[in-house]
Design a protein around this nucleic acid. Structure first.
Length: 413
RNA sequence: CGGGGUGUAGCGCAGUUGGUAGCGCGCAUCGUUCGGGACGAUGAGGCCGGCGGUUCGAGUCCGCCCACCCCGACCA
């Protein structure tokens, strides 16, 4: 991608009301643009990162047998009436009428739709277990949106729903899902602490949140520094010592990066999802649900992995693999040489952002720091026949030949 | 929804006791520059968030509304 043509204009100044890092840097780097409070456009840079995160999630959920579907955001009142949540979840449900005077809602979660869907196909124990998921937009009429992309009213969420013949099978799958979640965070270079949590309006009797320690966090959790056990402060009720090793728990502010629930039979009973077991008896399907906010995950990565100059993306989610800077655009030889290297890299399958803009060297370097692409190649009159290689995460600079560069990039990838 | 704050050029901000609108950046053209957000010259760009009031006169004073941000309850 030629940066001179790329839809990304970085900002010199950002509004003083942007407090959190993700808000400041994503705005300054032109990753996102606000439409109204808590509702954002993802510009090309932002969308590229989101898609990278999505594909990591998709791989891990596919690995535990998840089958991807895509459910509607637009949903009828009748469905929510059956689960008893039409009133209970007001807010956060957005509600409105269609032209025939029928009440509709924009889905804030999909237990109702997916349970109703499963009920149409799942009839026998032979149909179970089953795991369905989607990556889709959720709408929540929050009291207040805040922290840039941390809490918004419309967002992309991966929601997985699992269906089982009994509690034991759910328990087993729940553990697998938990491990898949940990793998997702690991691949995003995030350190999370799974904590026991309250199930809130989703329901069920057991849930875990995946918390990332951060000053921008809204949640207070209590963690054991020794064995990494943690709990959300809302369920602690006076327990201040680790149940495993007895150490005193430390309070920490954190951001919720995911939440998984054992739902049991609460939805299947209300929505009529049952199956014929091997013993000839009709039984309710046992369910679990598992959610990750994809945009929030992007915001959390920025919160955790950035420095005073800008964002430092992990390679796994970066918008481009390589940022190629030509510092002497007007020098025809240099320009030609850079373009050749660009073409070779594209040929080799790398995603490259080529800064061919007619800007000063300083502007290009500052922008590169801000945007935060992991690998930077610089070519200028100063580098002569060589190419400067630098990783965003550290300050080490190497001068390499064009051949050495392509070898090195292939090794790193 | 309660409390606090902010709305003036694309972005960031000034604007005095009410007197007809400014700075920086960005944008356009030209020239000189080019390794850490270069410089000069010229130029374009405003219903001063909206409605109503006070006044000869309102960006400025008063009232109502709207939008956005921050703190609280809620959440991925």
């Amino acid at each position: 991608m030629f940066q001179s043509k790329f839809f990304a204009k970085t900002l010199r100044d950002i509004p003083k009301e942007a407090i959190t890092k993700n808000h400041q840097l994503l705005l300054k780097g032109c990753y996102i643009n606000q439409l109204i409070s808590g509702v954002w456009t993802l510009n090309p840079l932002g969308l590229r990162v989101l898609k990278k995160i999505e594909s990591i999630i998709r791989e891990e959920i596919n690995n535990i047998g998840g089958q991807e579907i895509f459910m509607p955001a637009l949903q009828p009142r009748e469905l929510w009436g059956r689960s008893g949540r039409w009133e209970k979840m007001d807010p956060p449900l957005f509600k409105f009428k269609d032209r025939h005077d029928k009440w509709l809602t924009l889905g804030s979660t999909h237990e109702e739709v997916v349970t109703d869907l499963a009920a149409q196909y799942v009839k026998s124990y032979k149909d179970l277990p089953l795991a369905l998921y989607q990556i889709q937009n959720k709408f929540r009429n929050e009291m207040r949106s805040s922290g840039g992309l941390l809490r918004v009213r419309e967002f992309v969420m991966k929601d997985l729903y699992s269906f089982h013949i009994n509690k034991e099978d759910l328990d087993q799958y729940y553990e697998k899902a938990k491990q898949a979640y940990l793998e997702i965070y690991k691949r995003c270079s995030l350190k999370v602490i799974p904590v026991e949590a309250s199930s809130g309006t989703i329901g069920g009797n057991c849930s875990h949140e995946f918390m990332v320690l951060s000053g921008s966090g809204e949640d207070k959790i209590a963690v054991c520094e020794k064995c990494n056990w943690g709990a959300n402060s809302e369920i602690l009720k006076g327990k201040y010592f680790c149940p495993h090793c007895g150490r005193e728990l430390q309070a920490a502010s954190s951001i919720e990066a995911g939440h998984i629930f054992k739902l049991g039979a609460i939805y299947s009973e209300k929505m009529g999802l049952s199956f014929m077991d091997a013993d000839g008896k009709q039984k309710p399907v046992i369910m679990g649900c598992y959610g990750i906010g994809v945009g929030r995950l992007m915001a959390i990565i920025v919160e955790c992995l950035s420095d005073e100059k800008g964002i430092v993306w992990p390679k796994s989610v970066a918008p481009f693999d390589v940022h190629l800077l030509c510092l002497d655009t007007k020098d025809k030889d240099i320009n030609k040489k850079t373009t050749e290297i660009y073409n070779n890299l594209i040929e080799a399958g790398f995603d490259v952002l080529f800064d061919d803009r007619d800007e000063s060297a300083s502007v290009k370097l500052k922008d590169a720091d801000l945007i935060g692409i992991p690998t930077r190649l610089v070519i200028s009159q100063k580098t002569g026949n060589k190419v400067e290689y630098k990783e965003r995460a550290n300050s080490k600079i190497e001068l390499l030949s064009a051949d050495e560069i392509s070898q090195k990039l292939k090794r790193e990838a």
